[in-house]
Design a protein around this nucleic acid. Structure first.
Lengths: 231, 231
DNA sequence: CCAAAAGTGTTGACCGTACACCCATGA
DNA sequence: TCATGGGTGTACGGTCAACACTTTTGG
């Protein structure tokens, strides 16, 4: 109880997570089939209520961890949704978060045990309440941010090939890119370390592996560098 | 009371408004000197609690209206702040909004009666709690959006001169701009209607007045146009 | 030896930026 | 007449976009 503000209305606060993954050339969302009332059987985002004395970021991290087993995932607040009638079960103000994770890392048993499934963004089922609005907002945010910040790497394994990276951007923007221009642009930023190994899983010739160099990025940013990839 | 979620923790929800105005060549914030405990006498943003069955946007609009007498002002959600200890008086989750208003429109009696004052952004006093963080966030948002959306006009009178418009952008970005390039760019978008009158308040020669043409803007956007002013 | 993906450079168009002088007018 | 701010055009350089062929290798 507050010392100073005892008499005001209080609200239920929830967090909902829009969880992106990149797999088999497709951008996907991790969605849940609800196994409890209300709306049992419908698809929804992963969500949960805010605990007393828990920060919003912590609540979102907890929800994500309970579902995937992952910690230290890219997680960013998106927007609050507070229309009085958004949840017909009662007034709940919800804070939407968007998460980017590496699909090879998550705990499959946990995910499927929770009734969650990856769904390609081109083919999202009907969602509960205003969850579709949240998803659209998250997609717009991802598309905006991926142009100006190196967040795409959050969706790829530690080591990746340039064709893989290009395919990720193509999935995000639903648009084919010219590979010469794409390579020229990304390599000219000097943020990728080329490894000596190749990945031969996608071709006979094999493609060189690269790693994103976070510390080089921070160094450049400190000197006034701006990441920029216009698709 | 919720039918379905009766047992969860509930929180106090507030809104805080970061209110921008443009006056005498300066970008300013409308700040309040608190006349009640706690922290009486300190500066803060305009804020208030969310009422039961009121949307967040409505709450922010109400707070703004109570302070300035204005309605239909540019008002946009910024971010939620939910650290458990952000308000030492008790846990309050606050939704920050940023507002852009035309300084010639507000109700002076109301504003001063409420203990509010315009403060130039170069010279903001110490603020309560995390309000300074909110202000910085709002400034970054304004700077980002003003490049890609025609929101600057929200801060100017209906009719304005090009030198005034340029001075607004200079105040937002704290940077001098070349007037030939600025004019060329903004006029090439074909979004401004030139009036036949001049404003002679700032010079003997007088500068032509212009008006932003909202419907022309919407028409162009529908055709794929993107507003872009790179400062 | 062939299919399939990886890798590589050049050119033209457009846009952003830098830059200096004349005009109108009230005092 | 002069001081003050309003108004105008050009040229250069860099960046984006379009475009086709060679290389490697497993089957």
């Amino acid at each position: 109880m507050s010392r100073y503000y005892p008499q005001e209305d209080r609200q239920l606060l929830a967090v909902d997570c829009i969880i992106f993954g990149f797999d088999h050339g497709q951008l996907k969302l991790l969605l849940l089939k609800r196994n409890f009332e209300p709306d049992k059987g419908k698809w929804s985002l992963a969500g949960g209520f805010l605990n007393k004395s828990e920060s919003l970021d912590a609540a979102a991290g907890r929800v994500l961890n309970q579902l995937t087993g992952l910690r230290d995932v890219f997680l960013e607040q998106l927007r609050v949704y507070g229309e009085p009638e958004r949840d017909p079960g009662g007034r709940v103000v919800s804070v939407a978060y968007f998460a980017l994770l590496k699909v090879e890392d998550y705990n499959e048993d946990l995910v499927y045990g929770n009734g969650a499934h990856w769904q390609a963004i081109e083919n999202i089922p009907d969602l509960l309440y205003d969850h579709r609005v949240m998803v659209d907002k998250a997609l717009r945010r991802l598309r905006r941010k991926a142009k100006t910040q190196p967040i795409g790497f959050e969706l790829l394994p530690e080591s990746f090939t340039l064709p893989q990276l290009q395919s990720l951007y193509e999935a995000i923007y639903q648009k084919e890119l010219d590979k010469r221009n794409f390579r020229k642009k990304i390599l000219s930023m000097d943020l990728l370390d080329k490894l000596t190994e190749k990945d031969k899983s996608a071709s006979k010739k094999g493609a060189f592996l690269y790693q994103f160099n976070q510390s080089k990025y921070e160094e450049l940013v400190a000197k006034g560098f701006y990441f920029s990839l216009d698709v």
